[in-house]
Nucleic acid binder design. Structure first.
Lengths: 346, 346
DNA sequence: TTGAAAGCGCTAACAG
DNA sequence: CTGTTAGCGCTTTCAA
């Protein structure tokens, strides 16, 4: 199947490639009739412009890169979905790469994306990234980067985030409002900022309500797994018989807690309330269903693309990017693992 | 940051671009010394070839397209992950598009991918696709397509699949082997082939074991949702008090069944066994955990890319593609929603 | 062992 | 309104 090129169209019509190009691009200085002929022929021959050539010429690929820590993950696959949706509207395609929380991979992925002349990159930092030279290099090359979810304050670029601290504060406050006084917190690894922020939010909520912070109520969770939650639940109960709330930094862990509590015949939420974080799909199917903080992946993905798009346009106009920080609101999703709020609202 | 091009390197070194290109590409007819100088300069200036130009010249993009029905889905995100992993090894990047089970979107996605000069396409048919002209067009254009998961026998292309019929047969057989005799089947929409095949597998297993097929035990499930399972579970019990097994065509639905059964105080697996299909992540966290058929998304993704890669190479050599059909094996994952197999094995 | 030249397909500036 | 020309960055003859 010999490919249909501009040149060929031109030859068939007996006009120049330039004219054909303009006709196809709806330039104003083209005879209506010529334009019609071109358009018709193009359609009938099913002409597709060669985007490689276009890209080479115009110095843009209409492709953006998306670097994601882990694809098989409810939150991140929602992000992908949001990005694709928003990108589609503007005629952009998405190349996806997975960093697996590895700094090395992140670095090499950025390189690959630059090689492919992407017009911009969406990046969520890997947990092991502590240096940012590779990112600055990309930006210096004139390829805009927007960071989402896991970001660094040390990079000057647009960002799309949630306020983990506030979200965790609200979650803890919710537990308190529904009557909990002795609330354990299961936190993640020490490093990632999100984990730290959620921990701070937890502490702040306690402080605000004059509940003394008790370090022994804070449990460190190595992996982000169901099993970790399952194990820790037992520990919590052993250590603190009178605990009445658990706030886990992520749903999966909370789910493990739920399961163990049921096995231990600890009633949720009457004896102990449990609060997760993220609003993964699975929170709807546990028994009891899990109250959690909704982390809007889809919206983040959409927003991230839109910011990036704006930055791309800014850059194309030769202007300097003014980084935007966009915060996507989160909210509590009350389900059955927490008690009802008292009617008398503040 | 002015980009480093071949030309620039050539100028700096006082040699021709052609020579630089060859040096970089390890051509044999280049002076060792020249080569070294080129390589060094290239590295020190961090030269990256412009892939658009390369692509234009060599007529290949080193990008492949992946059309997926739905990204936010455990099975499919595993596929993505597998594809990316395999593609990475061969230096390919992946553009992802989501069809949302829409024929129109599928069609337009294929067009976009062709426009972007992808070297090949991985496609899982949307449920609403009944015509295949758009696919044949792509193949005619010389872009190889490999279909995975949801395929059509009417297309001559390589395919990566599981044997749904066999898998469903085994699942049903497993229920029978563990003592079930009156097994309900929750099936999906009428159209998709997978649904039909699973239904056939179910029937065949009954026949094989001399259990009479009873159409009233087959329930049609509109959506692929937890709620559907939840609703249907009640119906099953109302219609058939003595049912002792349920085989759902997908895990999510089975999970809904599990939940409703618990509410109805129907013991799983002692009174009724429940078997799902897919081995989604969530099957490990339900109560009881859900026995299911493992559907290996990651492996399918890897395999799909590899077949596509072979087809791309074949085509590049000017040979004709001989379609391969690759079947990825499935297996039963026994968990706690089914009874144990009797010790005396056949 | 090197380089000049042509061209992949498209577009933009400019001339007619 | 249309066409000529030049060139994006790279590769590949082919001649030197």
């Amino acid at each position: 199947m010999p490919k249909v090129t501009l040149k060929k169209l031109a030859k068939i019509l007996g006009i120049s490639p330039a004219t054909v190009s303009k006709a196809l691009k709806n330039y104003p200085d083209i005879n209506e009739n010529t334009k019609k002929r071109v358009l018709e022929l193009a359609k009938s021959l099913n002409y597709q412009p060669n985007s490689l050539a276009q890209g080479l010429r115009n110095n843009e690929s209409k492709i953006i890169g998306l670097v994601i820590p882990e694809i098989v993950h409810h939150f991140f696959s929602n992000i992908i979905s949001g990005v694709i949706k928003a990108a589609e509207k503007k005629g952009y395609l998405i190349i996806i790469l997975q960093s697996n929380e590895s700094y090395e991979q992140e670095k090499s992925h950025l390189k690959k994306l630059m090689d492919k002349n992407v017009d911009g990159i969406l990046l969520s930092l890997s947990d092991t990234t502590t240096e940012y030279k590779h990112i600055k290099q990309v930006i210096d090359r004139g390829i805009p980067i927007v960071m989402y979810d896991k970001i660094s304050k040390l990079i000057s670029a647009s960002k799309v985030i949630i306020d983990d601290q506030k979200a965790a504060f609200n979650a803890t406050q919710y537990l308190i409002d529904t009557g909990c006084r002795k609330i354990a917190h299961i936190r993640g690894d020490l490093k990632p900022q999100t984990t730290i922020d959620r921990f701070i939010g937890y502490k702040k909520a306690l402080a605000k309500n004059n509940i003394e912070f008790d370090a022994s109520l804070v449990y460190n969770c190595k992996g982000l797994t169901f099993n970790e939650g399952y194990k820790i639940a037992k520990k919590i109960i052993n250590d603190h018989k009178d605990v009445d709330g658990v706030f886990a930094f992520t749903d999966l862990v909370a789910t493990g807690v739920l399961k163990r509590f049921r096995e231990l015949d600890i009633h949720v939420p009457n004896q102990v309330s449990v609060m997760g974080f993220s609003d993964w799909f699975l929170t709807k199917i546990t028994t009891p269903t899990l109250s959690t903080v909704h982390q809007p992946g889809y919206e983040m993905g959409q927003e991230a693309f839109e910011v990036l798009y704006r930055d791309i346009c800014t850059l194309k106009k030769g202007l300097k990017i003014i980084p935007e920080i966009i915060e996507i609101p989160t909210y509590i999703v009350p389900r059955n693992s927490t008690k009802k709020l008292p009617k008398i609202s503040k």
